[in-house]
Design a protein around this nucleic acid. Structure first.
Lengths: 154, 154
DNA sequence: CGAGTTGTCTTGAATGATTCAAGACAATCG
DNA sequence: CGATTGTCTTGAATCATTCAAGACAACTCG
């Protein structure tokens, strides 16, 4: 099975063996970016019923170390993974439901990516996370609070 | 004890009761910003031997909810806390040892703090984290790798 | 194409940070 | 000072993630 399947080739070129769980995880991430390990596990299971959760963690660790996927760890929620890598983009995370959206950084405009005083650190990454409420959570919140300040569960 | 101690007043003005553990945590954070719960617990214990770790978590939760302290949760390390709040600054974190440094954002220059496309989100916070190697970890790394690529534990 | 080597997966258990719950206690209000 | 409400103590549980040992499969080379 040394076919020229682009996904397999990509994995192999990063020094990793091509296995069914790895292909399944990569495919699952293609259709559901920003998924957590547990969700990916569910997806992979549909395709490969014998797969263990630990295998998924192993796959994610290997792929992330190899640079094939990127791991994002928003505060207060399990780690998420995405295939968009090597293109400087950031994230918009809903503090209500945890939904994640990609935000493209305007190319050539990255002044914040250089700290004013790096304190001697050799900076290799600048991570920008925008926290807010997604459309759904805004709607839910305005329902809970009809006019202004109400609510307060008995 | 309704003295005009500024720290107590600050806590009280945020709607919280003033207690010994809270004062101790605030003081510990003053001298060791970016501390994790465990370190703060150790500090507080020196002062108040009967304090439990859960009390520290409770205090940190209450203070953070009240906006008296800020919680930062770097990927792969326990949550850290700091008293610098309401002044837009960011962090420089060492990917080697986890050391945290404050980075002041140049005032008036915050173009990255507005995402190019907010996808309908009501953004309330922009968090910028710079990842790099601190001076010590750079030194340690150059020792492990004398000239160029060596090492590889047997 | 088949055997060996190396890396990956399975199963089972452990870890670490954090949170939950019930009751004892103490800070503030009047 | 007494009542009320919020906070702390003790003890246990949760969640995401990692570790370990062995079974197994992918790639390498003859």
């Amino acid at each position: 099975m040394i076919v020229t399947d682009p996904l397999s080739a990509d994995i192999r070129s990063h020094g990793l063996k091509v296995t069914a769980p790895r292909l399944a995880v990569m495919r699952a991430l293609e259709y559901a970016p920003h998924s957590a390990a547990e969700q990916l596990f569910a997806s992979v299971r549909d395709e490969l019923p014998g797969t263990s959760l630990q295998a998924v963690y192993g796959v994610l660790g290997a792929l992330a170390d190899a640079g094939l996927i990127r791991r994002i760890q928003p505060a207060g929620s399990p780690a998420r993974y995405e295939r968009r890598v090597d293109d400087n983009h950031h994230h918009l995370i809903c503090s209500g439901c945890g939904a994640v959206q990609d935000v493209d950084c305007v190319v050539g405009e990255a002044p914040c990516l250089t700290p004013s005083d790096n304190a001697g650190f050799a900076v290799h990454t600048a991570e920008v996370t925008f926290w807010g409420l997604c459309v759904d959570c805004q709607a839910a919140e305005s329902l809970e609070t009809p006019s202004s300040a109400t609510s307060a569960r008995p």
